[in-house]
Amino acid sequence: MNAGQSEEGRLIRYLLGEALPEAEQSALEERYFTDDLYFDKLIAAEDDLIDRHVRGTLPERDRAGFETAFLASVRRREKWEAQRAIAAFFRARVKTKVEAETQKPVRHDGFGAACGHFLRSLFPGTRFLLAAAALFLIAGAAALTREYFVVRGQAAALQSRVVSLEDKPVRLPAVSTFFLQTARLKSDSGGSVLAISPDARWVVLRCPLPASAANAPWFATQLTTADGEEIWKQNRLTANESIVEIGLPASALKHGDYVLSLTAEGGTRPIPLPSYQFRIDR
């Protein structure tokens, strides 16, 4: 203890039993007898001295005086023991708490409890962000679920329609296709007579082109009866693999002889191509 000449130092020296000039000691004693505030300082210095010893912060040079002269008093020893007990109590209390924390068995409270412990360990700001993210995910999941059920409903409706369609007999329009050759008639069944089935609703006439007309950008066609009456006329027909395909309602073709004329167009002038003649038998 640095006694020095400070007031506290003088009080400490007095308490430790260190030699003081007789006049100084007498003045100090008379003062604390007559001045209660000064006596309070003396008591505080005594407490502080004990406290330093208990906490191990008392300088070595003061420790001897403390343990011999100071603790010679029963009253002071009681105070010292009491303060030592207080310090020991708090140390034991903290030690118990630390041991309880370190030896606490790992509790398996399930995923929910683990999440709760985890969340409680986070900073409030982080918890807020996590909560916002969780809400966002929940909202997104809800929207996706709603969309899923909507699409699922639509798929089910389509499925039922497909099933109903599958159940019904398919009524495709009946088509009679004929492959024509120039100067003579040739139906799918052979010959110049085209036999159109009674239920045919559409007739397709396929006309092969001569090599000279294969590059023409488009064609015009005209169907007339043998008497020259125009039955069907169509422009801007395109060829596909040197074949021009003409489709016309079956009702347009009555029983009788017909002439189908083709003209290559798109050039400087129209080029008449060989005509097709055939008979409709129905």
Partner: peptide, 19 residues
């Protein structure tokens, strides 16, 4: 308070029975 002051006084003088 006065009694305690006396105790301090006699303790300082190493009396064996300050109280």
């Amino acid at each position: 308070a006065l009694r305690l002051k006396l105790v301090f006084y006699f303790e300082r003088r190493s009396c064996n029975c300050p109280e």
